[in-house]
Amino acid sequence: MDPLSGAASVIAVVQVAGQVWSLCWKYYSDAKNAKSDIERLMGNVEALQNLFQRVQALAKGPGAAKLVASKELIERTALELEQEFKALRRCLEPSKQQSILKSFGRRLRWPLQKEDVDKIFQLLERHKTTLITAMNCDQMTAVVHLGNNLEES
C-alpha cells in the first residue's frame, strides 16, 4: 500500500462516517422510539471515525514506514468499511416522500429495526477490533526490532 492510496481510503471512511453520523442526528432529533438505537449507532460511528482519524495521522507521520503489518489490512478494512457506511447512508437518507412529510412538520421514521442496528454494531466492532489488532501487531514488531537492535549493540 503506498501512503497516498492508504490515506485516501482512510479519508473516504472518515467522510462517509461523518455523513452517516449526520443522518443519524437528523433521525435522533425526530425519532420517538429509536433514540437508544440511534445513540448506540452514532457512538459507534463516531468511535470508528475517530480511530480512522488517528490511523490517518499515523499514516502521514514520521513512523509511517514502520507500519509494515497493518498497511494492507488498514487499506482493506477502510475499503470494506467505506462500502458499508455508504450502504448505511443510502438506507438512512430520507426518501422524497419523507422529505415532503418533514416539510409539513411530520417526524422522520427511523428506517432500521433493533436487529438491524445490532448487526451493524457487530460489524463495526469487528472492523474496530481488526484495526486495533493490526496496530498492536505493528507495535509489537517495533518492540521486537528495538530489542534486537539493543542486543546487537
Rank of each mutant, 00 (worst) to 15 (best):
Q15F: 02
Q98G: 02
R40K: 13
K96T: 08
Q139T: 15
G61M: 03
P94W: 12
Q122N: 12
Q139M: 15
R40A: 06
H145M: 07
T133D: 06
S103P: 11
E80H: 13
L81T: 06
Q98E: 12
S103E: 12
L123D: 06
V68T: 15
V16K: 12
L123E: 05
M135Q: 08
V117A: 11
L73E: 04
L123A: 03
K32H: 12
V10M: 08
R107V: 02
S9G: 14
K114Q: 15
E84C: 04
K60D: 14
L88C: 04
Q53Y: 08
K128W: 02
L48P: 00
H127T: 03
T141K: 09
L58A: 15
T77D: 14
N148E: 14
E115L: 12
E115C: 01
L81Q: 10
F121C: 02
W110R: 00
L131D: 00
T141H: 10
P111N: 05
R109M: 05
W21S: 07
Q49W: 00
P3L: 09
Q53M: 12
N44C: 01
K66P: 00
K71D: 05
L48K: 00
M135L: 15
L112N: 07
P3E: 15
P94Q: 10
A47L: 10
R54F: 04
K86W: 03
A34N: 13
Y27C: 00
A69E: 15
K66R: 15
F104P: 06
A87V: 04
A8Y: 04
A78K: 01
F52W: 09
A8F: 07
K128S: 08
N148C: 03
F121R: 09
F121W: 04
Q122L: 06
L81M: 15
D118A: 06
S99L: 05
K71G: 03
H127A: 05
W21K: 11
C91A: 09
L101W: 13
T141E: 13
L73P: 01
K96P: 12
D37I: 06
D116Q: 10
A12R: 13
A69H: 13
Q49D: 01
G43K: 02
E93N: 09
Y28T: 03
V143G: 01
I11N: 08
N44Q: 11
R126P: 00
Q15W: 02
D2T: 11
R54T: 05
K86A: 10
E80G: 04
E39A: 02
L4I: 09
R126A: 15
I38K: 00
D30M: 10
E82P: 01
P94Y: 10
L4K: 11
Q56P: 02
A8Q: 07
I132P: 01
G63T: 09
S99W: 03
K86C: 06
K86G: 03
L67N: 11
